[in-house]
Each structure stands twice: as C-alpha cells, then as structure tokens.
Design a protein around this nucleic acid. Structure first.
Lengths: 345, 345
DNA sequence: CTGTTAGCGCCTTCAG
DNA sequence: CTGAAGGCGCTAACAG
C-alpha cells in the first residue's frame, strides 16, 4: 500500500533487514530453505509494501516466462472462444497467463504472432485453426515454429496435422461421414454442401467425410452440389442465396460448420423455404450459443472447450515427447429438428 | 534461421561487426541516428540470424512492457468475446499484445488478474464487466488498481462507473427505458423481468430503465414480476421455468440480456407457449450470433466491439487525462418478431 | 540457512 | 555517428 512508484525486491529486503537473496528465496524461490523467522519478516515486509515481483525481470533472469500464447482466427467466433476458454482454464490452474492473438484469418498475421510470442519467450504456444493446404504458408509457419522451439517453447496445434507438432485432431472426416450416412439413410438423394473456402483443410475434410458417408449408406446421390464461400455466417447466407438462385433443387443442405448453417437457414427462411419440411439442414461443431435455434440444428458435436484443455495440457503440463503426439477427438452426430426425411415427391 | 539456441543482440552485433549499442539502435532504438551503411549491416545480420528481441529484457530495461491486459467474466460469452475482438484490433494496430484474463465471475480472480498484470508491467488494463455494488469488493479492486497505476499503468473500465477510472459506459438504463416504452405502447400491461443476479449493476440498471420506460408511456403495469437468477443462458432458462411454474400470467417477458432471453425462449417453447402470440420476449445486447433466431429477438443493440475499441483507445492511444473520462454509448432498440401486441383477452 | 556476487538481454546516458 | 559502460529487477551458483 505504499505510495512509492515501484517497489522492488531490494526494498523488501531492506525493510526486512535481510539480504536480497533471502528475500528472493522466500518470495519466489524454490521453497523451504529459509528459516521461519526470516521468512515471516520478508513476507510481512512484502505485504506492507504491496510488493509484486516484476515478471519480466524474472523471465529474463530465469530464461523463461510464464506466458502461454494462443492464436485463433477470430476470437469473436464462438468456435474459437470456446477453445480459448479451455486453454485459459488450464493456464490458470498452472499460474500461467494467456496471450491471445486473433489473426483475422491472415496467414501473415499468424506468423507474426508466433514471432511475437517468441519475443515474449512464451513457454507454450497453441495454434488453433490454421489448416491451409498451401505449401508455402505451411513452410513459413513451420520455420517460425522451429524458431519458437529454438528458444525453448513448446507448441501444439488444434486442427492441423501437417506441421509435425503435437496436435489435437478433431475427426472431421469421420464425424461428417457419420452425419452423411444418417442423412442418406433418412432417404435424401439430392444434396448441397456449403463447403467453405477452398484450401481450408477443415472444410475439405468435412466435405470428403460427408461424401464417404453417403456412399457408406449404399446410396448414389442424384445430386451433390458444392458451393464455396467464406467460413462465416455471412458466407453461409450468401452461399445459400446462390443455391436458391441458380442451384439445383435439393432436399438436404449440409453446411460444413454451424455458423454457416445458421446463415443458410436465415436465407431459406427469407425465401419461404421450410426447414425441415422442404429441405433439411445440418451443420458441424455444435456451437453452444446456437443450441436453442428453432428448428434446432442437426450437427456434429465437437467438445470445443475440452479440445482447448487438451491442447493446453499437451504443451505445458504433460512431459515433452520426442515424437509428435496426436489426440484424436471424435465428433458425435446430434440429430435434431432441422433434418427429417425428404418430402414425398 | 540459425540453429543456435538463442540469438541475442550481441550475436547480431558481432556478426555485423558493430557495437552492441549500434545494433540496439537500429533494431529497436529511436530511429535515424545510425548511418545507412551500418544500418544495413545490422539488419542483414539480424535477418540471417533470425533475431527477435527479447521482449522481457526490453521491458525490464525500459521499465514498461508492450502488453495490455483485458479481464472479462467469461471469454466464451459472446458479449465479452466481441469486446475482446475490439480491444485486440486496437492493440494490434499499435504493436501491443493482449493478455486475457477470464475471471469466471469471481471477484477474487479479478483482483488476482490485476495483480498479475501489474507484475507484467502491463501498460494498460481494461476491465470489462465488473459491476458489483458490493462496497468491499469495489474497494479491494480499487486498491489493486491504484497499485497498478503506481507502476505506470493506465486503466479503463467497460460498464463500471464506481471506480474513478476512464470508462466506456453503455447506457443501460436509457436503452431499457426506450424498450420498455415501446413494449408498453404496444399494449402490454403484465410483465415479467428476468432480472439477473442481485447486486450486478448492469442488471439492475436495465431493470430500472425498463420500469422507467413503462411509466414514461403513461402506463401503470398490472403486473411486474421479478425473477433473479444467473446472467447466463441457463439462468434465463431456469428463471423462465420458475415463472411458468408459479409466476403470474404475463404477456411480456424482458430478459436483461440476450443469452438469458434465449434460454427463456427455449423454456417457453418446451412448454408450448407461443412467442410472440402468447407472450412477447425481449432481450438486451444484440449478440451477433443470436441475430438469426426465429422468431427474431427484439433487443437493445449495443456496439460491443466498438466499445472494446473505445476502451482500448482511452487507455493506450489517447492522451492521459487528469480527470476520469466517460464515453457513453447509447443502445438502440431493435424491434423484431419476438414481440407483438398482447393477445386479446 | 543466509549473504555475496555474477550474470540474464537490452537500453541509454556519456564520452570519443 | 559510434562505442564503452552502467543499470533495470531478479535469480542462481558459490561461499560462509
């Protein structure tokens, strides 16, 4: 509570009439190696002075900070904020702080963030959502990641398996397959897929899985119309409009993520297309905020927050392993009101 | 791209055959004070070595870091993630990094975060969502904030005006008043308000405003039933169930935020209560992810991301002012499908 | 168990 | 314009 500008360890030591080293030991050091008498004096002094160790100084002296970094595409996207919540929780349990970078889906910014985190000497880095198939970008990122490791940092990815890092891998393909199978089994034969941007692995995996699923149901689709567009609500909306305008008539629409599905449903509603009576709609992710839609959205549930937790554990609680580990997490199909058998012709 | 463990400024200097000081000047220093010849040599060396300045060391030497802190109640809540996105954007424009703390609505954790940010020597701190009316908690937080300022940090609050800091103040009361007036004008006389937790100013302001609005419409409500509960989706759901179970019959339900409104609508739907035919429902915030509900939710729009931007500017781009500034932001009533005139008796 | 003393990586006067 | 040297706050050997 002092009014002094900046209380340092020397101040505390002086006030407690002990050496700098002793003060350091009781306040931060590796535990009980200080007599109770001194210990108490130091604690009191620190308390009275309102002392808080300068984390930066500690980081430089120790050679490692207590920050962990997380990069996401867009923190306002509920998919990523759920992951962030998971990482946050674990960081907190371990007395670490979380530095967040929102890349706005720009690969350059992603690389910049990794670099900033290296500058901060972050002890861990979690990269969520970078799944491009562009070779050059991957290499650039890989280089930066290597540098990050070079200064002692550990890294994990969520949804990215071409980077030779530990990774939490949602089974996008398997999940979409299960979904596709169910939908085909319901009787659908004419599909449209809002497939997201080209070159985004998460999107293409889900598309591929969906195809697999239809095939697995021994169904030959009469139609499987693809529409590419942004991975966002508006992307879904626009894509659906496009379908309505000049696409084929379909009975089932699969959007490769929930937010796109919501956009699509809005477009359908505006055009008086009934869901699921005229067309069934399904998404992917099971975003919590979207669970109360009406009609309730059929989707594939991913344990988002848990994925964040697992990635966090891999980077800063589990032992380091020499070979990259991958934690596969399975998606679970959740059939709700937005899907039903196709209308009788 | 070297393989050396940690490239430091000395390494760069040596490789460029210049002094440490010169290297420091070109890489970070206050610009043009180094000859173009030397400058180039240093840049090249840094490049080749993959040098990145140790931010912690810089912070220690300079006495100030490049981190800004943001504390929120829950980063997975879209209200806060929108704010975070705004802060993030500004931080980024200014080459600062954002440290995020999710307090899980615990006042102690909030205080802890402020303390951690002081430890990090964060140059700015933005506190979002702490609006208790508990005197003791306010004091504790105020003390910690004072300490934070003591080490040179600047701070702003979003939705909090009892802390003598710069603040971005959503006009909760005025917004709710406008909404209440509209609803009363539609003919409603029997209201229920899902009022959130007691002691949360944001919630009580909105309730007070709503009351004002009804009165302003020259209406004497025949009923104004209050139900307190958590400020979350589930809180809204439970509160609505409670109303359904043993509350009075009402024609209009106002939930003090959108996520609660969504929970309430889910409860109503499950019980076969039609919205808006039997009861009108309104929320507050206009959460982006929830704009595609059906029926679309009447609400009061708050420019969430922009609020984050403004708070950020106040703390680390605008000049410091001696007296606390307050940026009021107005909410705008958005009437949508979830509200209508009450059913004819 | 406690105190002394080097660093950690960088910035910044202060001379040259 | 450039280089040498001290200092930022803290930790970690190394001696007593």
């Amino acid at each position: 509570m002092s009014t002094k500008q900046t209380v340092t360890l020397v101040d505390v030591a002086r006030r407690a009439s002990v050496s700098l080293a002793t003060a350091s030991r009781v306040l931060n050091g590796s535990m009980r190696t200080v007599g109770p008498e001194f210990r108490a004096r130091v604690m009191d002094a620190a308390q009275e002075l309102g002392y808080v160790a300068n984390a930066n100084a500690q980081a430089v002296a120790r050679g490692a900070s207590n920050v962990v970094g997380l990069t996401v595409h867009d923190i306002a996207d509920p998919y990523f904020s759920a992951i962030a919540a998971g990482v946050m929780r674990v960081a907190d349990e371990h007395g670490l702080v979380m530095l967040l970078g929102s890349t706005e889906r720009s690969p350059e910014r992603e690389v910049e963030y990794v670099s900033m985190l290296r500058a901060q000497r972050a002890r861990a880095l979690i990269i969520a959502g970078s799944r491009t198939s562009d070779r050059k970008r991957i290499d650039r990122l890989a280089t930066e990641i290597a540098a990050f490791r070079g200064v002692g940092g550990r890294v994990a990815c969520i949804s990215q398996n071409r980077l030779r890092t530990d990774t939490v891998l949602p089974q996008n393909r398997a999940g979409a397959r299960d979904l596709g199978r169910e939908l085909a089994a319901m009787g659908h034969r004419r599909f449209a897929v809002l497939a997201g941007p080209r070159g985004l692995l998460t999107a293409s995996d889900r598309l591929a899985g969906f195809r697999d699923g239809i095939r697995a149901a021994d169904v030959v689709p009469e139609e499987l119309h693809l529409i590419h567009g942004p991975f966002t609500r508006d992307g879904g909306y626009e894509s659906a409009l496009e379908l309505l305008r000049d696409g084929p008539r379909v009975t089932c629409l699969f959007a490769v993520n929930d937010v796109m599905a919501v956009g699509a449903m809005a477009a359908l509603r505006e055009h008086g297309v009934a869901v699921p009576d005229q067309v069934s709609v399904a998404g992917f992710d099971d975003i919590a905020t979207l669970r109360d839609l009406s009609p309730a959205l059929t989707t594939v549930r991913l344990p988002l927050e848990d994925m964040g937790v697992r990635a966090a554990r891999m980077t800063f609680v589990d032992e380091e392993s020499d070979t990259p580990r991958v934690a596969r997490v399975r998606g679970q199909v959740i059939l709700r009101e937005s899907t039903a058998a196709p209308p009788a012709t």
